[in-house]
Amino acid sequence: MTLAARDRRLGWGLLAPALIWTAAFFILPFLAMVALSFASMDGRTVVHGFDPGNYVRIFTDWTMLKALINSLEITLVVTVVSVVLAWPLAAIIAFRVPARWQRLALLLAVLPFWTSYVVRSYSWLLVLGQNGVVNKALLGLGVVAEPLQIVATRSATVIGFVHFFVMLLTLTIYANLIQLSPNYARAAQDLGANRWQVFAHVILPLTLPGVVTGAFLTFVLCIGDYITPQILGGNAELTLPQLIMLQLGRSGNFPLASALSVVLMAVVTLAYFAASRWLRLDRV
């Protein structure tokens, strides 16, 4: 056996466990799910077959379509608001905070990122509830006469999401900003650009990869999340993941839940292709 062939056999041997695991517990389940999405329900039993009925239902039944629209709207709002809030935060940490304090400032800015996801949503429930801190403060200051209904509305879901994703995006945008050589800004200034022009035409475009990567992650994690809309938004309006969980729990309709998941997956794939031009997943 030649050296190269021996090397290659060794390579496949080392790669095999990870590949087999991914094939058995990621690719195979996914294919099983796609197959199941074409099954139908007879009472409470699953009838396997090739029936596109679930997909027809998703795009004709207003409850289903509305859940998809809700998810898209919430995700887009959350992504845009989070980017707009996180960019200045990352920039201030990267450019204003002295170098030796930057790591600490960043660590602090994202510390709640590491707390339990479920608990974080619950905490916002305490903050935003009828008797919560925000309402008590607003009432005390005389800003409002009646407590605001925030929990169990879309606003609460958006606030909970934005909180989480501002932290995530601050990390990805900071990582991008800190790699920029100050020479770009200097060169632009030497060539007569004012501060606004330096920002708009030099710094901002250069951070686009970090922004797009973070925004894509935000999109994927946000649109697939069940916890935040369930705890903070309640059942007033459903998102896609909530609808999927309802199908699993209440009616045991696995085929419909699978079809909804395939639709969710398709939306994420579309987002990936939209973002892929600037996406650097390997540099997160």
Binding site: F26, P29, A32, M33, G224, D225, Y226, A257, L264
Partner: peptide, 8 residues
């Protein structure tokens, strides 16, 4: 999404 991995 984790939800899809879980469901699969």
């Amino acid at each position: 999404s984790y939800l899809i991995i879980a469901l699969g």
